[in-house]
């Protein structure tokens, strides 16, 4: 869905998305890694299993929830990709703490 500009060449950070390795530039968020990897939809909704993907990239919409290093429902756009990070798209991600 997104591609790196040629000048993004240089040292890269390798993360895995559902087991597949994706190289992203340092400073990229996990949500950016999802977009670069084409890992979209990145989740489905609890209410109707509708497909979703990162929407705002700045922490306000909560559409980018994925599992990162075993911790479920993290905001991918608020986490900087780090070497070796394991990202998993959760097939059915519920809302956080339904009250």
């Amino acid at each position: 869905m997104f591609a790196s500009l040629p000048d993004a060449a240089g040292p890269q950070v390798a993360v895995t998305v559902d087991g597949k390795t994706v190289a992203v530039p340092p400073g990229a968020s996990v949500a950016a890694a999802l977009l670069l990897a084409g890992a979209v939809p990145s989740r489905t909704t609890a209410v109707s299993a509708a497909p979703r993907a990162p929407y705002c990239m700045m922490g306000v919409c909560f559409e980018c929830l994925v599992e990162i290093d075993g911790v479920a429902e993290r905001q991918a756009c608020m986490v900087t990709a780090a070497e070796g990070m394991r990202v998993r798209r959760t097939p059915r991600s519920s809302s956080i703490e339904r009250s």
């Binding site: 997104f2 790196s4 500009l5 990229a28 670069l36 509708a50 705002c56 990239m57």
Partner: peptide, 25 residues
């Protein structure tokens, strides 16, 4: 507007600024 592939313009700018990533297609 909830479909994957639909984002805000600001989101695309953030992807560009922080990851050098641009939309394709």
């Amino acid at each position: 507007w909830t479909l994957p592939g639909v984002m805000t313009a600001g989101a695309a700018q953030i992807a560009l600024k922080s990851a050098g990533a641009v939309p394709q297609g």
